[in-house]
Design a protein around this nucleic acid. Structure first.
Lengths: 199, 199
DNA sequence: AATGTTATTTATCATCTGATAATTTACATG
DNA sequence: CATGTAAATTATCAGATGATAAATAACATT
């Protein structure tokens, strides 16, 4: 109960939220928190762990590189599934709070995004557009930045909604579909130049 | 001096930053702050004002709708110019902190983005792709959401850099150019369907 | 019901924090 | 140089805040 409410509480208020307010929300007294957690900091650590756990489904590892299916289909399926895991009030806000605080914790997760989503996307884009494989010409920063653009379309929607409190788009799945289609239709126009430039 | 350092300070620490720490940074004593500002809250208000001022250049109003030039050229010029105004440590972080805190202040600014950037972009996209004008068929939520995608590519880069502390991309102008080119090349593939669906 | 153990609350501490009052320093003006 | 005013510092306050200790309530076992 403490952890569950702490996640909600810190997501809403930020980590400067007072232990008394948290306790009052749970319906217990403030010192009771200290029977279960030695300090506020340790409770926050627990919140981090809880929040970061199980946000990546191992099935997704094989989803993006599966060339038996059209890339658009794979990316749409992936981002729709992924959105169900991370398009979430608590996750988005705690991720932002944590980033603004130190950034340490986000590093791990951003590496995951880069290695499990963006690099594979670059590889598939190369393949789709008949460009040299990433073995012969390795992925360039500028190329990865293009893929971050796709991720930005996706994640900025969550930022607008959960951090800026903008009204939610009616059909998220449709918006994701549009983003991916636009991205894949537009990528060839710039991707080739980027790879050429990299030679 | 107080305001200048307060901006830097609150951007770094967040609005929970202590007045003593701020004073110590400026090199003055904490009570002296209260000679110039009646409360911490009023100082934060001042920081808001200072930060939001002059972030929009009136010249930009006519830049995006100027059909004598190619749309790509206009959008690239706009976003490169715009990035010089807002791609900034203090602005991005205070905007995020303020959003996470209440969202009130961001509303005004997001309305500006919508009305001065995204709606014009939708109108130009309609024109470029020979779709009905926004007078006959008004801009749909889903269509605006597409344009938010472009903005997301742009702004999420700033979030990654200033909130998550990711290393900066070497050539921001090139990245913006790529984003706009990709967006304009990809938009026709989805834009028509969206407008059709709106009928 | 008696007794020991665990869970929870009440009372409290030391420190921090925004804010104010009293005092001192710096400075401008004649 | 004297004197009045503004600027800044020192000394403090009241309430908040993370954390601890002591007391009480709840509960399980016999």
């Amino acid at each position: 109960m403490i952890v569950k409410e702490a996640i909600r509480f810190f997501a809403e208020i930020g980590f400067e939220g007072k232990t008394r307010d948290l306790a009052s929300r749970i319906g217990i007294t403030q010192p009771l928190l200290y029977r279960y957690f030695p300090s506020k900091e340790s409770l926050i650590e627990r919140v981090y762990q809880e929040i970061y756990v199980q946000r990546w489904n191992p099935d997704w590892d094989t989803l993006i590189p599966d060339r038996t299916r059209p890339l658009a289909e794979r990316l749409i399926e992936f981002y729709q599934a992924y959105s169900h895991a991370v398009y979430d009030y608590e996750w988005v806000r705690i991720f932002l709070f944590s980033g603004l605080k130190s950034g340490e914790l986000n590093d791990r997760y951003l590496s995951l995004i880069r290695d499990k989503i963006l690099r594979p996307v670059c590889e598939e884009l190369r393949h789709m557009n008949n460009l040299p494989s990433t073995d012969t010409i390795k992925i360039k920063e500028e190329e990865l930045e293009l893929a971050w653009g796709l991720h930005g379309m996706f994640f900025y929607r969550a930022v607008r909604h959960f951090a800026y409190n903008m009204p939610i788009v009616k059909n998220t799945d449709q918006a994701i579909t549009n983003d991916v289609r636009l991205f894949l239709a537009g990528a060839p126009a710039v991707h080739k130049d980027i790879v050429e430039r990299a030679r």
